[in-house]
Amino acid sequence: LDMDCLPYGWEEAYTADGIKYFINHVTQTTSWIHPVMSVLNLSRSE
């Protein structure tokens, strides 16, 4: 699993305190969880 590779439309950013988060420019949303990890967690719960 390549954690450096973000899906299309996603960008890694940091808060003023240096905390990493992710921006989805396609849906105009943000997430604290890496988008690949959130997809993996969803697929495990099914």
Results as ranks from 00 to 15, higher is better:
residue 37 M to T: 14
residue 46 E to L: 06
residue 38 S to V: 08
residue 33 I to A: 11
residue 17 D to I: 06
residue 41 N to A: 10
residue 4 D to F: 07
residue 44 R to G: 15
residue 6 L to M: 05
residue 44 R to K: 11
residue 24 N to S: 01
residue 5 C to T: 14
residue 25 H to M: 00
residue 31 S to D: 01
residue 41 N to K: 06
residue 26 V to H: 14
residue 16 A to Q: 11
residue 21 Y to V: 00
residue 8 Y to C: 09
residue 6 L to T: 04
residue 11 E to Y: 01
residue 43 S to L: 05
residue 9 G to W: 05
residue 39 V to C: 12
residue 14 Y to L: 05
residue 23 I to N: 05
residue 13 A to K: 08
residue 14 Y to F: 06
residue 32 W to H: 00
residue 21 Y to G: 02
residue 16 A to T: 09
residue 17 D to H: 05
residue 21 Y to W: 06
residue 43 S to I: 07
residue 27 T to L: 15
residue 10 W to S: 03
residue 20 K to A: 05
residue 37 M to S: 15
residue 34 H to L: 02
residue 22 F to G: 04
residue 40 L to I: 03
residue 35 P to D: 01
residue 30 T to Y: 00
residue 25 H to N: 15
residue 31 S to H: 00
residue 20 K to S: 02
residue 14 Y to H: 07
residue 13 A to L: 04
residue 42 L to E: 14
residue 20 K to V: 05
residue 20 K to M: 02
residue 15 T to A: 03
residue 14 Y to V: 09
residue 35 P to L: 01
residue 44 R to L: 08
residue 13 A to Q: 06
residue 26 V to N: 08
residue 30 T to G: 06
residue 23 I to W: 03
residue 17 D to R: 05
residue 33 I to F: 07
residue 43 S to P: 12
residue 41 N to V: 05
residue 23 I to E: 00
residue 8 Y to P: 14
residue 14 Y to C: 07
residue 25 H to L: 01
residue 34 H to W: 00
residue 1 L to P: 09
residue 16 A to D: 13
residue 36 V to R: 15
residue 36 V to A: 15
residue 5 C to Q: 13
residue 38 S to E: 05
residue 7 P to R: 04
residue 15 T to M: 03
residue 13 A to D: 00
residue 23 I to T: 04
residue 24 N to P: 02
residue 36 V to E: 15
residue 10 W to E: 08
residue 13 A to W: 04
residue 29 T to Y: 07
residue 39 V to Y: 02
residue 8 Y to Q: 12
residue 41 N to S: 11
residue 3 M to H: 12
residue 43 S to T: 11
residue 34 H to V: 00
residue 27 T to R: 11
residue 34 H to P: 11
residue 45 S to R: 11
residue 14 Y to W: 10
residue 9 G to K: 03
residue 44 R to H: 10
residue 8 Y to G: 13
residue 44 R to N: 12
residue 34 H to E: 03
residue 30 T to W: 09
residue 7 P to C: 08
residue 21 Y to T: 01
residue 15 T to F: 01
residue 20 K to N: 07
residue 29 T to M: 03
residue 4 D to I: 06
residue 34 H to G: 03
residue 40 L to H: 13
residue 16 A to C: 07
residue 23 I to G: 01
